[in-house]
Design a protein around this nucleic acid. Structure first.
Lengths: 227, 227
DNA sequence: ACAGTAGGTCTACGGTGTAGACTTGTCAAC
DNA sequence: GTTGACAAGTCTACACCGTAGACCTACTGT
């Protein structure tokens, strides 16, 4: 029997676990908190050890993005109309990103690389073509739609704010005050809608509206590419 | 006559010029190249000098964003339909950001702070309300629309790539190759549209389509907020 | 003439990503 | 069994970052 107390203490660094803790760290303290040193420390290991498993930091970040994309739970094709199905695909995408607004932006460059990103992209184009788009046009529209969805998540009201609820609430109050203090003669609409602008009514509504807007846009540019 | 050889060598650091060179630097070498040390060096000054004019780095970055926003050349109100006017406003916004895709994202947090951002936001809400939106709804829709426009610019095909044309071209070729090398059985649409996905036909078309998509979306969600 | 101050400098600190040479446990092949 | 190869982790060091705090110093208003 060889020398291994519990599954080879030598290989104590599971890349998957590193990614997990990196994601957790980003979720709780923001992307800037994800540091090789900090990550190494939390795994009781030297910073340089990480380089045995990741080419460099961006490689690790890409791995996080790929993990997010892998969480997409794409709905099975149904007999519904193309636009309803498209909406479902988009909702699935957003659902995968929503829990991690701080890192959602990382997926921008990985969609056409990661497996599940490719599957979603292919499916999206499929539905667009079924909806009557030319393949070229479908590619451009799909690209933009997916980008918009990502941004929907990264700019979710309150994303990027401090994680401490008190500081965050303080910051929001400050913004509202600043906006409310503007001259109502010059900015009547902004001042009166200050609350909504700073932080929309409900997060669910926010996402529903966001997706609706995109789907409606796609439907709208369908027949006449030259509007 | 006091001692000034040429306009007080003591005050050799014009904040406006610092912002200008920061913007230039970001445009040519990417946002990451904008460094206090580098900026100071290019103005023959110590890094700490910058702190006499900017509270910290983020303050300087905000100043860049404000400058971009100040470049917006908002069209005068006309008698046209609300949606056509809205389109013109959006086009003006995009025109201001387009020359600086690397820093366009900085404007996200400054629109409701900078003068010209506020003016544009107010005007946007005005038009939306003229189009029949409730004020609250207009705020949410407007917010999302403006975010989408910004992202349209930051994700412009080839943005964030290396500035050297050769490296950049190389990178694009690589991506196209990777995409084209996928299994056509699994990803028939992606592989056949690889070229368009990597880099859309024309930049102008790209922006036209992007704006069309957003305007069409707004038009589409107008009457039925609960679709 | 003098105090105040705005603008720029110097030094230093703690943080970052990462290159390169080194150690060491593990396993395969002779 | 012994011996190598090798994968995984370590150590040291470097260049760079933003910025705090004390300092100088030339100008300005009184």
């Amino acid at each position: 029997m060889p020398t291994l107390s519990k599954e080879t203490p030598r290989r104590g660094l599971d890349p998957a676990k590193v990614i997990d803790s990196a994601l957790l760290l980003a979720d709780t303290e923001g992307l800037a908190a994800v540091t090789l040193r900090r990550l190494a420390q939390s795994h009781q290991v030297t910073p340089m050890s990480l380089y045995r498993h990741f080419a460099d930091k961006s490689d690790l970040l890409n791995a996080i993005a790929d993990k997010l994309l892998a969480d997409i739970d794409l709905p099975e094709p149904t007999g519904e109309r193309w636009d309803r199905q498209l909406r479902a695909v988009m909702a699935a995408f957003v659902d995968a990103l929503r829990p991690h607004p701080n890192v959602a932006g990382l997926t921008l460059t990985r969609i056409l690389v990661a497996e599940s990103g490719l599957v979603m992209a292919e499916r999206t184009m499929e539905l667009l073509i079924e909806g009557g788009f030319e393949p070229e046009y479908a590619a451009e529209v799909g690209r933009q739609a997916i980008c918009s969805l990502i941004v929907l998540v990264t700019t979710e009201p309150g994303a990027g704010e401090d994680p401490e609820p008190e500081i965050r609430e303080q910051s929001l109050r400050m913004k509202r005050a600043t906006l409310g203090a503007l001259d109502p003669k010059r900015y009547p609409l902004i001042t009166s809608a200050a609350d909504t602008l700073v932080c929309p009514t409900s997060t669910d509504r926010y996402y529903t509206l966001g997706i609706d807007l995109i789907v409606a846009g796609i439907r709208g540019v369908r027949q006449d590419p030259d509007a």
